[in-house]
Design a protein around this nucleic acid. Structure first.
Lengths: 121, 121
DNA sequence: AAAATATGCAACTAAATTATTGCATTTAAC
DNA sequence: GTTAAATGCAATAATTTAGTTGCATATTTT
């Protein structure tokens, strides 16, 4: 294929482990409905499914599924309170995602810096 | 359904527009292969498809498709150089995504703060 | 010009995602 | 103890996604 070395192996750009861990978090956030749910939950406290549903055009079951997607990504948790199931935001994984974006941004800034220095040299 | 007001309308937690704009960016980042591509591109400069492919187990066409997904989200751009098409990172949209996560995190911190003050009062 | 390289385009497949409906179960309220 | 409310579970359907293969086209290189 290519005579040159692979771009992926040439520089070892970011910790692969970090990326592997962050991708599912971004995937969970990559849906408008779920992003809205996260926003609601991080603003309030623990909220029931019925409450979360009443703001949307989709059914309760759809909301439930979205909540499970978020839970699988570790972004929300639930506790059973009486006949309700209350969901709450869990900030740890979101911090991970933030750090990943920060890493990428920093990497980019460094690349620009190097380019600038090379041009000025 | 619920006797209470909807959780979504109760607090107007985050700008809906901001979320609507960020969701597609997160969706684009929500795949390990694409996240790797972004990392490679933000570390190096402009890289051809063949180079980007040689680091992976998938085909050139699959890489091409991923690049187009990233391009649709505004995360990468391409320029034609001879018979190659070189792809490069475009940082603007990533900054948007970072700001969204920062907003959510800040919202969460404020909620904790309020809770704390309410408990101490 | 011929051969090799880099890419584009199209058809197709398999699997995952999103959302629905219908019914069962648990818990609270009257 | 009925009734109403909140939720869970299962089957299904439509759409999207991720990936492949095969072939065509454009550009270098020799």
């Amino acid at each position: 294929m290519s005579p040159r070395r692979s771009a992926a192996s040439r520089k070892a750009p970011l910790k692969n482990a970090s990326l592997r861990n962050s991708a599912p978090i971004f995937a969970a956030l990559g849906d408008e409905t779920r992003l809205r749910l996260v926003a609601v939950l991080c603003a309030g406290g623990a909220v029931s499914i019925a409450q979360l549903t009443s703001g949307t055009a989709i059914t309760r079951q759809a909301v439930t599924k979205h909540l499970h997607v978020l839970a699988d990504a570790g972004l929300v948790q639930h506790v059973k309170v009486g006949r309700e199931r209350q969901w709450q935001f869990e900030p740890t994984r979101l911090e991970e995602a933030r750090r990943s974006l920060d890493l990428i941004a920093r990497q980019w800034d460094q690349a620009l810096q190097k380019l600038k220095m090379a041009v000025e040299a």
